[in-house]
């Protein structure tokens, strides 16, 4: 269970409880602070309020351990080494296959991957850390229809199997209808519930 209590960045405040295995979609106009909220939950930026995961408060544990538990997928994937495999700490054959990659992808050069390939690889890289909760910032924005379907399926299965709460930022109402258990929208300084 992921609890946000009075989480405040700039002018937006979020009070939200995401249950185990629940997927909550968050939408709102660009610049409304969706990404900032995700980054605040991952404790990457200074913020007000508390975030609690399964009874443990973010402020009470070392920041890197918190971030391993509450995994954030930034909107644009970033890479630091030359080859794909250098970014993975363990073999992820099943997850790679679920997103359409064979095991040979680990030898690929990052510079030669397309934006969509990098995005799918970034999702597998995040899951390789085995996070117990997911914060996804428009994970399928750069993907085609087939890719979108595969990612939605993979995330949903992960969330079910690990009982992981998921906060999923999405602009796509079709996607929200497919994956969300609840839909919230940022409106001004707060968040309103949108009926599914």
């Amino acid at each position: 269970m992921l609890i946000m209590e009075g989480l405040r960045v700039r002018e937006v405040t979020l009070d939200l409880v995401i249950e185990k295995g629940e997927i909550v979609c968050l939408s709102g106009p660009s610049g409304s602070g969706k990404s900032l909220l995700l980054r605040a939950i991952a404790d990457l930026i200074p913020h007000e309020g508390r975030v609690i995961f399964n009874g443990e408060e973010c402020a009470g544990m070392p920041a890197h351990l918190w971030r391993r538990r509450v995994g954030l997928l930034p909107a644009e994937s970033q890479w630091w080494a030359d080859r794909v495999g250098e970014h993975f700490s363990q073999s992820m054959t099943a997850e790679l296959a679920a997103l359409g990659f064979g095991p040979e992808v680990l030898a690929w050069q990052i510079a030669r991957c397309s934006t969509g390939e990098r995005q799918r690889l970034a999702i597998v890289r995040l899951l390789a850390q085995a996070p117990a909760a997911l914060l996804l910032d428009e994970p399928t924005a750069s993907l085609d229809q087939a890719g979108i379907g595969r990612v939605e399926e993979l995330i949903r299965r992960y969330s079910q199997r690990r009982q992981a709460p998921v906060l999923w930022v999405s602009h796509d109402s079709g996607q929200v209808a497919r994956v969300a258990d609840r839909h919230l929208r940022i409106a001004g300084a707060g968040v309103e519930v949108v009926s599914l």
Binding site: L44, H64, L65, G71, L73, P74, E76, W80, Q129
Partner: peptide
């Protein structure tokens, strides 16, 4: 900035994220 923050988001400690 984006690369370093991605590494932090993946649970790396600051000294690892800034090592390069």
């Amino acid at each position: 900035q984006a690369v370093i923050e991605t590494r932090l988001a993946l649970g790396q400690e600051w000294r690892v994220a800034i090592r390069d």
